[in-house]
């Protein structure tokens, strides 16, 4: 009787221990699912964040960063390695967009020392990577609305950051007009005076008399 008394509590402890251990493993396995979403921003927050154009760098800011070789920034090129090897911004790091969330790049992309600028072959590529990183809680991420090619041609090779497509989301064409021009007379409807007329209201305010000769 005495022997069993000693033995029984020990067995019970053992039993509890095993059950709890299994339970923990089970819970762990259930909750540890690398594919489970773990956004820090819910969809509405994410939407507000991008509608405000948060984290968007302008072409002139990009120019300044490149010209002054600002070491606070690192440029991450999201294109495929073959494009990167062909032509890239000096000092930029290549992390193809497919691997942007890999653990091995976590310390590169989520850090307090440097601000990361995401840039890709087009603005959609960089903004998708940006949204995923920002919504996951990565800090100090920025995005641009133009491509690597734009940077090469309009900032690196020559200084013209405000010419060409420096913001891909801007209307470059007056669509209705272009269509009508191509349309010729085949779809005619009404006659309108041509060309530049439609370029926005220009103020015709009279300047206080400018001295002649100025120009």
């Amino acid at each position: 009787m005495e022997e069993r008394k000693d033995y029984a509590p020990f067995e019970m402890k053992h039993f509890y221990g095993v059950v709890v251990f299994l339970l923990i493993i089970l819970i762990g396995m259930l909750s540890y699912n690398s594919n489970a979403p773990h956004y820090v921003k819910n969809p509405s927050e994410s939407l507000v964040h991008i509608i405000d154009s948060a984290g968007l760098l302008h072409a002139t800011q990009m120019a300044e960063i490149l010209y002054l070789e600002d070491s606070l920034y690192q440029i991450v090129d999201l294109r495929k390695p073959k494009f990167f090897l062909n032509n890239h911004i000096e000092g930029s790091i290549n992390i193809p967009i497919g691997r942007i969330l890999d653990k091995e790049f976590l310390h590169v992309l989520n850090q307090e020392e440097k601000i990361t600028i995401l840039i890709g072959s087009r603005s959609s590529e960089s903004v998708i990577a940006y949204m995923m990183l920002a919504d996951e809680g990565y800090a100090n991420i920025r995005v641009v609305a133009f491509s690597v090619d734009f940077v090469m041609s309009n900032i690196v090779e020559k200084y013209a950051p405000l010419s060409g497509r420096y913001d891909e989301e801007r209307t470059v064409y007056d669509y209705a007009r272009v269509i009508s021009e191509t349309g010729g007379s085949t779809i005619s409807s009404e006659t309108v005076k041509s060309n530049a007329k439609k370029i926005a209201p220009v103020k015709k305010k009279k300047k206080a008399e400018e001295e002649e000769g100025g120009c």
Binding site: R177, S180, V192, K193
Partner: peptide, 9 residues
Amino acid sequence: PSNKVVVKA
């Protein structure tokens, strides 16, 4: 700006 008349669709 212009006096030319074009047909607009």
